[in-house]
């Protein structure tokens, strides 16, 4: 009985406000005539008609998501590899630190014009844009995670002669994984932003291109449905990350809960 009530209450709390907002949107757009804010139903129709259309799905949506996936994967691999080397080599870290701080501070989007100039338009440029912006959080967090290993575990690994690839797999990378995962979360949101930006500039296909196209054509409901789609992509990516992070860092969350009592 109480369990049922609790489930109902939690469902109410989860869905209450979103439904209320949706209702408010519907009521507000019904009574006014502003063209900028179509009714939710109209946006829903446009969403189905636009983004579930196989042609647009195959030409714009999937290639965009593919570039996002490849770009982010490259960033993660490059970031962890380079970060591990830099983080475990003190002189290299001292050498590169100021430049890395500088590169991190450059707003990733200003590299879009640079890369457009150097690489021209096309998939290479778009991938390069994603990687050039989203590699930094992974790289810098890996450096920090690898550097700040627990000294007792370092001694333990040395005295039991756990070295090389084995140490990398079972000591260095797991020890840095909380920081690495934090970097990957940032990398994902920056990557998504850069995917859109790279397509808003002088492109002829892709999610970002389509949304800007709809806006310029005053296809308002379609534009809104594009924003909704990007929002959904963002939410899904965040949710998938959350699940993966819980798995990878289960020991970390577990031990923190224990130490908090």
């Amino acid at each position: 009985m109480t369990a049922v009530r609790r489930t109902l209450a939690s469902a109410g709390f989860t869905l209450g406000l979103p439904l209320l907002l949706l209702l408010g949107w519907a009521v507000a757009t019904r009574s006014t005539t502003t063209i900028y804010f179509p009714t939710p139903a109209r946006v829903g129709e446009a969403f189905v008609a636009t983004w579930l259309d196989p042609e647009i799905l195959g030409r714009d949506v999937l290639p965009s998501l593919g570039r996002f996936a490849i770009g982010v994967a490259l960033s993660i691999v490059i970031g962890i590899a380079a970060g591990t080397v830099i983080g475990s080599t003190p002189w290299l870290r001292a050498l590169l630190e100021p430049m890395l701080e500088f590169f991190r501070a450059i707003p990733p989007v200003v590299l879009v014009p640079v890369l457009m100039l150097v690489l021209g338009l096309g998939d290479t440029m778009r991938l390069a844009v994603i990687v050039s912006g989203s590699v930094w959080p992974v790289l810098l967090n890996t450096v920090e995670g690898v550097r700040a290993r627990d000294p007792v575990l370092v001694d333990t690994s040395r005295s039991y002669r756990v070295r090389g690839a084995l140490a990398l797999r079972y000591f260095v990378l797991p020890a840095a994984s909380p920081q690495i995962m934090a970097g990957i979360r940032l990398c994902l949101s920056i990557g998504l932003i850069l995917m859109v930006i790279s397509e808003m500039f002088a492109a002829s296909s892709g999610l970002g291109y389509q949304i800007v196209f709809f806006q310029r054509q005053y296809m308002i409901a379609e534009m809104w449905s594009g924003i909704v789609l990007l929002g959904l992509v963002g939410v899904v990516v965040a949710a998938v990350f959350h699940v993966v992070e819980r798995r990878v860092l289960h020991w970390y969350h577990g031990s923190r809960e224990v130490s908090r009592g």
């Binding site: 007792v152 575990l153 005295s159 039991y160 079972y170």
Partner: peptide, 24 residues
């Protein structure tokens, strides 16, 4: 073989008891 004072830090928290003993 060395046993350290800081037992909380000398075991790999991401490995099970068995894997901790097996790694060396």
């Amino acid at each position: 073989a060395v046993v350290f004072q800081e037992y909380g830090q000398s075991l790999y928290p991401w490995l099970t008891v068995r894997d901790n003993v097996a790694l060396p």
